[in-house]
C-alpha cells in the first residue's frame, strides 16, 4: 500500500493523500480545515483490511501526518506557542487536559442541543424580519404655496444688467494736473490740496495726487500735513530748505 495513494473523503478535500499534501504545501488548502483524525482513521481502516503491518508504510504515514499536524497546530495556535513552551511537562499535560475537557463539554452541549432539536422538531412558528423601527418624524417648516410661487417668480425674473463701468475708467493725464498746480502756485504761494480736488471724481483725485507727488519729487513744492489724514498743504518750495531736506534724507 502506498501512503500517497490513500483515498480520502473529507469535508474539505476528496482525493489521494499526496494531492492533499501538495495542496497544503502550495497553500491552496488551509491545514486548519483538514480533519487529521479522519485521515488517521481511514489509514488504520485500510491497514486493517490488508491484515498485515507494513512498518515502512506506517513509518512514512506517521512522518507525513506528524508534519501535517504540526502545520495545523501552528496555524491554529500561532500566538500561543510561546506560552506553552514556558510550561514544564506536567503543566503542559494539565493544560492539555483542561483544553480537552473544555472541548468535551462543548461536545456534550452540542449533543444536548441535537437532542433538544429532535424533541422540539414539531415546532412551527411564524418567522419574519424584525419589526421596522418607526421612521423619525421629519420636521419641516410650514409650507406655503404663495411663498413658494413668490420665490419661483423672483428666480424667473430677468436679472439686472451688470455694470461694467469700472472696467472703462477714464484717467486724465498727469500732465494736466502738473500744469494746473504750477499755474496755481504762480498766483498763490500755497494752497490746500483737499479743497482744490474736492469737486473731482475719485480717479481724477488719484491722478491729481500723483501729480503732486511728482512735483514734490522734482522739488517744485513743499508738502505739509498736521496729522495723518489731515488736509495736505502745498506750498512753493524754498530752494535752500529743499536742499537741506534732500541732505537729511540721503
Amino acid at each position: 500500500m502506498e501512503v500517497g495513494e490513500l483515498e480520502l473523503d473529507l469535508d474539505a478535500f476528496e482525493g489521494p493523500f499526496d494531492l492533499l499534501l501538495t495542496l497544503v504545501l502550495k497553500q491552496e488548502l488551509e491545514p486548519a480545515d483538514v480533519d487529521v483524525a479522519e485521515i488517521v482513521l481511514l489509514f488504520v481502516e485500510r491497514l486493517a483490511e490488508r491484515g498485515e503491518l507494513d512498518l515502512d508504510v506506517c513509518g512514512e504515514f506517521l512522518v507525513l501526518v506528524a508534519a501535517l499536524l504540526e502545520l495545523k497546530a501552528r496555524g491554529l495556535f500561532a500566538d500561543e506557542s510561546g506560552d506553552l513552551d514556558d510550561l514544564d511537562a506536567e503543566e503542559a499535560a494539565e493544560e492539555l487536559a483542561r483544553r480537552l475537557a473544555e472541548y468535551r463539554r462543548i461536545r456534550e452541549a452540542a449533543a444536548w442541543l441535537a437532542e433538544r432539536l429532535g424533541a422540539e422538531g414539531g415546532r412551527f412558528f411564524r418567522v419574519g424580519p424584525a419589526p421596522l423601527a418607526p421612521s423619525p418624524e421629519r420636521r419641516l417648516a410650514r409650507q406655503d404655496a404663495e411663498q413658494l410661487a413668490a420665490a419661483m417668480r423672483s428666480l424667473a425674473a430677468e436679472p439686472a444688467a451688470l455694470s461694467l463701468s469700472h472696467m472703462a475708467l477714464q484717467f486724465p493725464p498727469v500732465s494736466q494736473f502738473l500744469d494746473r498746480f504750477r499755474a496755481l502756485l504762480t498766483r498763490r504761494s500755497r494752497f490746500d490740496f483737499d479743497s482744490e480736488v474736492a469737486r473731482l471724481s475719485r480717479p481724477e483725485q488719484a491722478v491729481a495726487f500723483l501729480a503732486l507727488l511728482e512735483l514734490r519729487k522734482v522739488g517744485e513744492v513743499a508738502l505739509a500735513q498736521a496729522a495723518p489724514f489731515a488736509a495736505i498743504r502745498v506750498a512753493r518750495a524754498d530752494p535752500l530748505e529743499e536742499r537741506e531736506w534732500i541732505a537729511r534724507s540721503a
Binding site: 473544555e102 468535551r104 463539554r105 456534550e108 452541549a109 424533541a119
Partner: peptide, 20 residues
C-alpha cells in the same frame, strides 16, 4: 428553534461531563 425561554435554560456547562 430550540424552544428555550432564554439562554439560562441551557444546562450549566460545568454540569456537562467533560471527562476530565
Amino acid at each position: 428553534v430550540f424552544g428555550l425561554e432564554s439562554l439560562s435554560a441551557l444546562p450549566r456547562l460545568d454540569d456537562l461531563d467533560g471527562g476530565e
